[in-house]
Computed example of a mutant assay.
Amino acid sequence: MSPTTSDPERLRIEEACSRLASARTKGELGTLLAREAERYTLVDLQMIGGRLYREVEALPPPYREAVRPFFTEQVLGAYHRLLSMHRAGKFAAMTAPLTDPGQALAYVAMVPEGCFCWDDSGVAGYEPRHRFFYYLVAAFEMFVLDRPGHPVGMPFPGGFSVEERSGRFLCPVRDREKDVPHSLCNFCPAEQSEMP
């Protein structure tokens, strides 16, 4: 993947994705993701947390209250796990190859466009690099830890949730996002759960 634009923010994201595409092991990818995540300042994290809060607040009750801790875990919990593992040196011991290198490459190839395809102009200070943060922490969960992009237990409308059964992850919306090209679901290691 080579950079394709002169827009500085897009170029930075494309260059970061090019570095991520070079990872061959879970530890290499974890290290590269952590280095990118370390670039985010406290102000950036406040902006990301504020955007997350507004998105959850827009949901109808009581679903809003049920899903709030899972969205927080999905974004900020994953960020803290990523940096904690990096700072503890755990990625150095993770020499196993990526479980699905083709899927990981397709994901990082999709990310730059995913960061710029949304109109975030109505949110003062929110920039594509903030959206890139979501893609970074999701890549950590899906390709380093082989876990779903949405946390186990996360509820969805209709009373369904992400489940873990005998080491397999099942998601009620896994295959419902096929028409959304920048969706995490298209790259998630979870399987579509059977709907009743």
Rank of each mutant, 00 (worst) to 15 (best):
S2Y: 07
T4C: 05
T4E: 09
T4W: 00
R12G: 00
I13T: 08
I13K: 07
E15S: 15
E15V: 13
S18G: 12
R19W: 11
L20N: 09
A23C: 03
A23S: 14
R24F: 00
K26W: 00
E28L: 03
G30A: 04
G30Y: 02
T31P: 02
R35C: 10
R35T: 11
R39P: 00
T41L: 06
T41C: 09
L42N: 15
V43T: 15
R51Q: 11
L52P: 00
Y53F: 08
E55C: 08
E57S: 14
Y63V: 08
P69G: 13
P69Q: 13
F70I: 05
F70L: 07
E73S: 12
G77C: 01
G77M: 02
A78S: 08
H80G: 05
H80S: 15
H80W: 12
R81L: 09
L82V: 09
L83A: 05
T95N: 08
L98D: 15
L98G: 12
G102K: 00
A104F: 01
M110K: 13
M110N: 05
P112K: 06
P112Q: 04
G114Q: 03
G114H: 01
W118G: 11
S121L: 02
S121Q: 08
G122Y: 11
V123G: 04
Y126H: 11
E127A: 14
E127W: 00
P128G: 15
R131M: 03
Y135W: 01
L136Y: 05
L136H: 04
V137R: 00
V137T: 14
V137L: 03
A138M: 06
D146V: 13
D146M: 01
G149Y: 03
H150Q: 06
V152R: 09
G153R: 08
F156T: 15
F156S: 15
P157F: 07
G158M: 04
V162C: 12
V162H: 06
E163K: 07
E163C: 09
E164C: 10
E164S: 07
C171L: 03
C171W: 11
V173P: 01
V173I: 15
R174I: 04
D175N: 14
D179L: 02
V180N: 12
P181N: 13
P181S: 02
H182D: 13
H182A: 11
C185F: 06
C185L: 02
C185S: 06
F187M: 08
C188Y: 13
P189N: 07
P189D: 12
A190I: 02
E191K: 10
Q192G: 06
Q192F: 00
M195S: 14
P196D: 12
P196S: 11
